[in-house]
Nucleic acid binder design. Structure first.
Lengths: 147, 147
DNA sequence: AAGTGTTACTATCAATTTGAAACGAACAAT
DNA sequence: ATTGTTCGTTTCAAATTGATAGTAACACTT
């Protein structure tokens, strides 16, 4: 999961995927956003093997997306809370969900509503500068020269 | 990679990750958006083992994100083009990139500019209905009952 | 006091996946 | 005839995954 030199890869996608480029990590983040905090909550929600869960939680914690908090001294018990970086992952989750809704949308699906307006949330990615939806206008990629 | 019953999982994130929930698939989609179409282009760009590349391209093709097109009869040569579903994945890529830029942004990074205005693209996810950025307003999750 | 339950793991090990390296098939070019 | 290109497959070792069971440290119940 940790590729050799992803830390200085010029592609921010590759850098991100080096940390969370697997299904379990992303589903853990999803559940963390849904309010789960404890080992057994994640385990039961995901049906993940405890060995894997331990490792994923450790990686996400090391990488600063989750933080451990001791909520009981005797016996020592930790829970996992989203950090600011972890909370910033929510837009990624929503865009993944938006794709799934569009292209794998059969049957019953979880829905999200704005608590104030009561309207269903329809997530779209836009360019904050122009306001245009991502992908609707021609763009130019600039690769940094490597020296 | 293909979990048991992800096809009728009520979570659109889980459904999506069942198809593209690994690093290579997402990087292939990234490169496809950058214009790569051929086996060897992907292989060289990613440094991926050909065995894996074959399998990933096959999955992405089966799942309708890429399509094979024969560009030479003798010898038979195929290239891989993004389908509409594959192009719709671009917002996910941009949000992953946005996270990486924010939280793993040291050193040189690839940049994207709007070809018309010349401004750098800053991707954000918003609720199309309220216009608010995702995560800035309280929301309510509704799980479908399973019957 | 003994037994049961809860929580957060670790240990063990088989099965699967990954990935490196070499090879192949079908040609084109020199 | 030889070399190069493209798109793979074959083979096999190494790493990862995941299922199952066990453990440690308690609280709670009887």
């Amino acid at each position: 999961m940790d590729n050799k030199n992803t830390g200085n890869d010029p592609c921010p996608i590759a850098r991100t995927l080096a940390l969370v480029g697997d299904t379990w990590s992303i589903l853990i983040l999803r559940d963390a956003h849904a309010g789960l905090t404890r080992f057994d909550q994640f385990r039961k929600s995901l049906g993940i093997a405890p060995t894997i869960l331990t490792r994923r939680l450790a990686t996400l914690t090391e990488e600063g997306l989750l933080e451990k908090r001791r909520y009981s001294e005797h016996p020592p018990r930790e829970e996992y809370l989203l950090t600011a970086a972890g909370r910033d992952f929510l837009p990624v989750l929503f865009m993944i969900a938006a794709w799934g809704r569009q292209h794998r949308g059969g049957g019953k699906l979880v829905q999200f509503f704005d608590a104030e307006t009561g309207t269903e949330i329809k997530a779209v990615a836009v360019d904050e500068v122009t306001g245009a939806k991502i992908g609707t206008r021609p763009m130019r990629m600039v690769t940094p020269d490597e020296n």
